[in-house]
């Protein structure tokens, strides 16, 4: 029996599939802001496997403490309120990993991230997935995503949105989807939106401001 190994050839470590999907859009040397960075797993992955420099923003003290104890640079704060102080284009990349559906002001936060970073990477649970659509149609209930618990209140999402909803928000903010992929799938461009919105449970978007 063989065990899978990481790209560096080292021993296998549990890596979240969405983190792997996000990391492919981060380049060596990028300065990255991870908004809602939790205990810093993604930042560690981006540092060790992508050679990125990372900063985190996290609201929970326990997460911040774990990050700081791991040697990661993290500021205790709140995406809904603390982003305006960052200067324009301070980062190469800003990441919202499964956080956008938990924000009080998602449009504001997205706009701010597009201001402070050249590239915004968003990962989210796709409520446009066919299972969601058919479940709603057949049972009349909104299914839960990303959780084994079927209760609708169990997955932490404040606002369920689909890939198309997010694409609309991006367009409204003057952002292009320069790449998209299903978590666990291959990178695609914006033309795959319809397919992804039907078939992918979790999606990563790379957003950039329209070129002049």
């Amino acid at each position: 029996m063989t065990f899978p190994t990481g790209p560096s050839g080292g021993a296998f470590r549990a890596r979240r599939a969405d983190h792997v999907a996000i990391s492919q859009f981060v380049n060596e040397g990028d300065l990255v802001l991870d908004v809602g960075c939790g205990d810093g797993q993604l930042m560690q992955l981006l540092q060790s496997e992508r050679g990125a420099r990372t900063r985190g923003l996290e609201v929970e003290q326990a997460g911040v403490n774990r990050c700081v104890a791991r040697g990661l640079s993290v500021v205790q704060g709140d995406a809904d309120n603390d982003l305006p102080v960052y200067p324009d284009r301070a980062f190469d990349v800003a990441i919202l990993s499964k956080t956008i559906q938990e924000l009080a002001r998602p449009k504001f936060v997205m706009g701010e991230l597009a201001r402070i970073a050249r590239r915004v990477i968003v990962s989210f649970r796709n409520y446009g997935h066919w299972k969601v659509r058919t479940a709603l149609l057949t049972t009349g209930r909104v299914p839960s995503l990303g959780s084994s618990n079927p209760d609708w209140w169990s997955d932490g999402a404040r606002r369920a949105c689909s890939a198309r909803d997010l694409a609309d928000l991006a367009a409204d903010l003057g952002l292009d989807i320069t790449a998209a992929c299903a978590v666990g799938g291959q990178p695609a461009d914006a033309s795959a939106l319809k397919r992804l919105n039907w078939s992918a449970e979790e999606i990563v978007f790379v957003l950039e401001r329209h070129s002049q």
Partner: peptide
């Protein structure tokens, strides 16, 4: 942050 420095902040 505005100066681009490497900073962590912990509120206890």
């Amino acid at each position: 942050n505005a100066a681009g420095c490497d900073v962590s902040y912990v509120s206890i």
